[in-house]
Amino acid sequence: MNSCRWMKRVEACFDGAPADPAVERHTAACPVCAAHLEALRRMRAGVAAVAVRESVTDAQFPAFMRGIREGIERPERHHTGFWAVLSLTAAALIVAVATFAVFSGGTAPVRATEVESMSTDLQGAKVDTYRSEEGVTTVWITMSKDDVE
């Protein structure tokens, strides 16, 4: 930002200090101070525009008061509590169902029997598993008769 040693005096005149012909002459000749003064004027005009207060005229006053009265005298909504209870119930149901799904593994039907592991300590024996046509899970060992004789 450009600067000039006269700027403080320009601002003082702008803020209502007694008129100073020297300042006026300098401002007319100095582009820096002229631009600064113009910026100050624009800022003041902008602030003034924002700070305009709304006022209610005598003609508008009855309508203004009627609006206030309607706001005060409007009957209360008695079903607010009902909706609150309904919302709370719905929330509780959602939480309960979600929790049930987590702990029970959802609504998946009971599946067939499964073999998680199988082994034998008998030398040369072999273990297999299969599911019969009847759906019966089977673990079958093929062992030698020498193991028991």
């Binding site: 998680e116 199988m118 034998t120 273990v127 899970t137 060992i141």
Partner: peptide
């Protein structure tokens, strides 16, 4: 141990 197995048995089956 002739056989050691771990089963997940469906109820009633």
């Amino acid at each position: 141990t002739a056989l050691s197995t771990r089963l997940a048995l469906a109820p009633g089956k």
